[in-house]
């Protein structure tokens, strides 16, 4: 187990280094950093001095190592557009994105697993057929369309929920949360549903097909033949055996939820990391883009690590011999 974690950690570090190289390449070679920072009327000699002072004339390897060193200390330079340290920018936007991603992951998990189990246990009921048909819509409709549709129904027509922004937030010092105010919670509902819908249908369909598969196995038949209760069989014996693939997909999807909240954040003008990224792309704010790239890679690497460890917790067959 420990050896396994160490091996995975080493792999994660390698992945992060590769991503860092790409981020560094973007940072260093997409456009000229000096040209982006100074005005058109700065003299060439001054530009040269700046270039020397920022170390841009050093060998590439030295610059890359410096980039990594800075990254390790959470230092990604100054945003061209907003003239603030990039790390500060991202951290200030992060709570919004994490709250949104977490809320939608919860919605997706709870309803995905619940509906998946239901449709697997009652495959013949009309309710299951309805859920399955609706899930097709969830899988095939693009996120922005769902978002706009929800805004149209619940904000424009019914006027129940706000259509944009985060509502009132409470500052906890290191975390600005929207979960403690009514307007914050109300604002969260539509974007969270929008972002969760695709994952929800995906998890539901996965749980359903895995569950149907497991219910046909011999050990479920044997459990029936021993007179165990339906409940113990369905939720104790069957559901647990569907969990490994579900954990994999949910984990990867959680990464995607954070990474691709961009569309949802744009539709709802949600002040998160995704909208920060979109705004930065529009003006080629390279330091922000590079840092965002590193951040998303880190999210994926960490989630993958957690998923791998969870396998071990769920499935004893993986534990021996590691």
């Amino acid at each position: 187990m420990l050896a396994f974690i160490i091996r995975r950690l080493a792999q994660s570090v390698l992945v992060m280094l590769v991503v860092a190289l790409i981020a560094f390449a973007v940072f260093r070679y997409v456009g000229d950093p000096i040209a982006s920072m100074v005005g058109v009327d700065t003299r060439l000699a001054d530009q040269e001095i700046m270039r020397e002072r920022l170390g841009l004339n050093d060998p590439v390897v030295v610059q890359f190592l410096r980039f990594i060193g800075n990254a390790l200390q959470g230092e990604f330079g100054i945003s061209y557009r907003l003239q603030q340290p990039v790390t500060e920018l991202i951290l200030s936007r992060l709570p919004a994105t994490i709250e949104l991603a977490f809320a939608s992951a919860m919605i997706a998990l709870i309803f995905g697993v619940g509906l998946g189990v239901f449709t697997a246990l009652k495959p013949r009921s009309p309710a299951s057929a309805l859920v399955m048909a609706l899930s097709l819509i969830g899988v095939s409709l693009p996120t922005f369309l769902i978002g706009i549709g929800l805004i149209y129904i619940f904000s424009v027509e019914l006027g129940w929920l706000p259509s944009f922004g985060r509502g009132q937030v409470v500052d906890l010092g290191w975390w600005r949360t929207g979960l403690l105010t009514e307007s914050g919670l109300k604002s969260l509902i539509l974007p969270a549903i929008t972002l969760s819908l695709f994952q929800l249908t995906l998890i539901m369909r996965l749980v359903r097909s895995e569950m149907l598969e497991v219910l046909r196995t011999e050990y479920i038949r044997f459990a029936r033949a021993r007179g165990l209760s339906q409940r113990a069989i369905n939720f104790g014996h069957a559901l647990k055996n569907t969990l490994v693939p579900v954990i994999t997909i949910t984990g990867l999807q959680l990464g995607s939820v954070i990474a691709f909240a961009i569309v949802t954040e744009t539709v709802f003008q949600w002040p998160g990391v995704g909208s920060l990224f979109i705004n930065s792309v529009q003006v080629v704010d390279v330091p922000v883009m590079a840092a965002y790239l590193m951040f998303i890679a880190l999210v994926f690497v960490v989630i993958n690590l957690i998923v791998d460890i969870l396998y071990y917790v769920v499935d004893p067959r993986l534990r021996v011999g590691g």
Partner: peptide
């Protein structure tokens, strides 16, 4: 009581 054919698949692996 019932005993099934294949002991490798009759027991819940988890």
């Amino acid at each position: 009581g019932m005993i099934f054919q294949d002991p490798l698949t009759s027991l819940n692996p988890l």
